[in-house]
Amino acid sequence: MFGSYKVKLEGELLEKIQKCVEAGSYESVDQFVIRVLERELDKVLPPDQGNAASKELVKKRLQGLGYIE
């Protein structure tokens, strides 16, 4: 349903991303790219209807683990 999409990263941009990863901030180039895209999507798109359900799942999980009231 969701499929996949490949983007080719090269040259200076890739080098800079690799430096960020090397600096220890991210586990991999993939993680860096996904994190940045998720952040940008969150800014551009309106909150989706699933957001409340997501929050509830996280809340229940953290309560079960004893980390929140």
Partner: peptide
């Protein structure tokens, strides 16, 4: 759900 949560925290 946790990805949404982490995005919210990052923002």
């Amino acid at each position: 759900a946790f990805k949404d949560h982490l995005t919210e925290v990052s923002t």
